[in-house]
């Protein structure tokens, strides 16, 4: 047990501190990892309960796969438009950025609209939040995802308004980057939901 205290000052400061990401960007990454656990728990719940139909209709028979496929393509393309918007911000072309922002928001709202249509259809068929555990799990999982899409749309539109303000320019890159992270995350979650709930549900 020897004394081994490092003599001070031997480590150059620069080596110790790699360039850190912006606080907001890092914070959003951490928040999204918590969100991953949130959706993972919901998906696990769905997998556990998706066959408990309480004598009512089963989801597999009611799924309208073509509609959902269109919705999926819509949402995925909104990821692309989001990325295009971010590219415009980096070029400081704020007009172009606003254009892609609007397109992204429209695509997101279109997705939410299709989801609302689907929910309406399922409700008419008697597959409901309060009809059976399978319905509870389905609507909670996809509903929370839908809320995330709506929140994203709210965020997109808010950012659109904000982009006309003087302060926008100095923070534009970060503001758009964190929104982009969030938006891509919501899309990735949808891909998983689409696979687990719709594709696997149809196969089964």
């Amino acid at each position: 047990m020897a004394e081994m205290h490092p003599p001070i000052g031997t480590h150059p400061v620069e080596m110790e501190m790699p360039a850190a990401p912006d606080n907001s960007v890092l914070g959003v990454w951490i928040w999204l990892s918590a969100e991953s656990l949130f959706f993972a728990s919901l998906i696990a719940t769905f997998l556990l309960l998706h066959n408990q139909n309480n004598g009512g209709p089963s989801l597999g028979k009611l799924i309208d796969l073509p509609l959902t496929f269109v919705a999926t393509v819509t949402l995925l393309s909104s990821s692309l438009t989001m990325a295009l918007g971010y590219a415009q911000v980096l070029k400081q072309n704020y007009g172009g950025f606003r254009f892609w922002l609007v397109v992204t928001a429209i695509l997101g709202l279109a997705f939410a609209g299709m989801q609302a249509f689907e929910f309406h259809h399922l409700y008419a068929e008697g597959f409901r939040l309060n009809s059976a555990p399978s319905g509870s799990a389905f609507f909670t999982l996809t509903g929370f995802h839908g809320l995330h899409v709506l929140f994203g749309a709210f965020w997109l539109i808010s950012l659109l308004f904000f982009s006309f303000k003087r302060e926008f320019v100095e923070e534009a890159a970060v503001k758009v980057k964190v929104l982009g992270l969030y938006w891509h995350f919501v899309d990735v979650v949808w891909v998983i939901i689409f696979t687990v709930v719709y594709l696997m549900g149809k196969v089964a």
Partner: peptide
């Protein structure tokens, strides 16, 4: 909802 309702399969 019926996540935990035993009689409904929760």
């Amino acid at each position: 909802a019926h996540f935990f309702t035993v009689s409904a399969g929760g």
